[in-house]
Design a protein around this nucleic acid. Structure first.
Lengths: 185, 185
DNA sequence: CACAAGTTTCAATAATTTCTGAAAGTTTAA
DNA sequence: TTAAACTTTCAGAAATTATTGAAACTTGTG
C-alpha cells in the first residue's frame, strides 16, 4: 500500500501522540492509518506500509480491538481479515474517554473511597484526607458530567459544544428562569 | 520522614497513574507525597521516604517545577530548599490540562491545519482530509470549552457541572426566548 | 577567600517496554 | 485429510526510559 507524504506525517505524529494516550507508537500509527483510510486494510498491508513486523501488527490489532476501536471485515472469496476504524471521530473520542475512565479513574475512585472510610486522628492525617477528598470529588464531578454528555443525542451534543464561549450566558439564563420560578410561588 | 500505610498506598497508586498522565513513576510519587503533606518537604526527605536517589529527586523536582506544580520555600536559618505542591486540587487539574494542551494538542492542531491547507485530489485524499478535519474540529472544540470552563468561578463551574445533561433544557428555553425577541422586532 | 552545606548534572547501568521472526495454531477448501 | 493461506504467540533481541551515585557546581557564611 502506497502512502502519501502528508498521510505519512499524520501517521507518524499520531504515533508519537498515541504513546502519550495509552498506546505505543506502532499501535498509534496503525490506528492513525486505519482512521484516514477509506477501505479496510489487511494485516500485511499495515505491516509493509508502516515497516513493522507481521507479529507486531497482530498484537496491535488485538489491542485496538480490546479498546473497541477497530473492526474486522471479510471480503467474499478472500480468507484475509480486513480491518477498519469504527465510527466517527466523536465516537472514537467517546470510546477512548470511556475506556480510560474504566481503566484509570474507576480504580482510583475506589482506592480513594477506601482511604476516606475511617476518620483521621492527627492534624496531618486530616490534611491528607482533605486532599484525597478533593481529588475524589473532582474526579467524580468530571466523570458524572462526561457520562451525562454521552447521554445526549449527537445533535444535542453538538448544540452544547458549539455553545463554547456562551457557557456563562446559559448560566444567566438559568438564573433568570430560576428567580422567576421562585417569584411565582 | 515517616509515612503511614494509607498514605503509602495513595502515593504508590498515584505513581502508577502518573505514568499514564505524562510523568514517570517516581515523579508521580513525589508529587503525590507533596500533595498530601501539609508542611513543605526537603529533597532528602523525599529521597529517603520514597527510597529513591537524591539525584532522582533533583530531576523530578525540576520536572514538577517545569509543570508549575511545585514551589520552593525557605526556612530562615536553614540553607535547604523546601518543596510544596502549589494550589488547590482544582488548580492542579487546570495546570495539568493547560500544560498538556500546550505540549500535545497545540502542535497537533498546527500539523492538522497545515495538512488541511491544500485541496485533495483523489477520493481517498478527500476521505483522509475529512477525517483530519473532524479531528481538528473536535480538538478545537474541546480546547475552547476547556478554556471557557477555566474562566468560571468555582461556584459557576459547579453549577454547570451539576446541570449536566440539563443544559439542553436551558438551551431550548433560551432558544424560545430568543425567537420570541426576534418576533417582537 | 575557603569551606561547608547544599543542589545539579550526567555517564553508566538497570529496568522496562517494544519489536521481531520463527514456530505453532487455525480455518477453509479441494 | 491434507495442504495452503492465513493469524497468533512468545522467547529473545533491540530500543527506550528511568535511576543511581559520584563529581561538578552553587551559594552563603565565618
Amino acid at each position: 500500500m502506497e502512502i502519501s507524504e502528508k498521510n505519512k506525517s499524520f501517521v507518524y505524529h499520531f504515533g508519537e501522540m498515541g504513546s502519550k494516550w495509552g498506546f505505543n507508537r506502532t499501535v498509534g500509527q496503525m490506528y492513525a492509518l486505519l482512521v484516514i483510510t477509506d477501505k479496510p486494510i489487511t494485516a500485511n498491508e499495515l505491516a509493509s506500509t508502516l515497516n513493522i513486523s507481521r507479529g507486531n501488527v497482530s498484537m496491535g490489532i488485538k489491542e485496538l480491538q480490546a479498546w473497541k476501536l477497530v473492526q474486522v471485515t471479510h471480503v467474499p472469496g478472500d480468507r484475509k481479515e480486513y480491518y477498519n476504524a469504527i465510527g466517527s471521530v466523536m465516537d472514537m473520542a467517546n470510546i477512548v474517554f470511556e475506556e480510560r475512565r474504566k481503566r484509570e479513574v474507576d480504580p482510583t475512585l475506589s482506592l480513594l473511597r477506601n482511604l476516606l472510610l475511617d476518620t483521621p486522628e492527627t492534624d496531618s492525617e486530616v490534611y491528607a484526607q482533605q486532599r484525597m477528598k478533593d481529588i475524589h470529588d473532582l474526579l467524580e464531578m468530571i466523570t458524572t458530567w462526561a457520562s451525562e454528555l454521552q447521554k445526549l443525542t449527537p445533535e444535542q451534543l453538538n448544540t452544547v459544544m458549539k455553545l463554547g464561549a456562551g457557557v456563562t450566558k446559559i448560566l444567566s439564563v438559568k438564573q433568570a428562569l430560576f428567580s422567576k420560578k421562585e417569584n411565582e410561588h
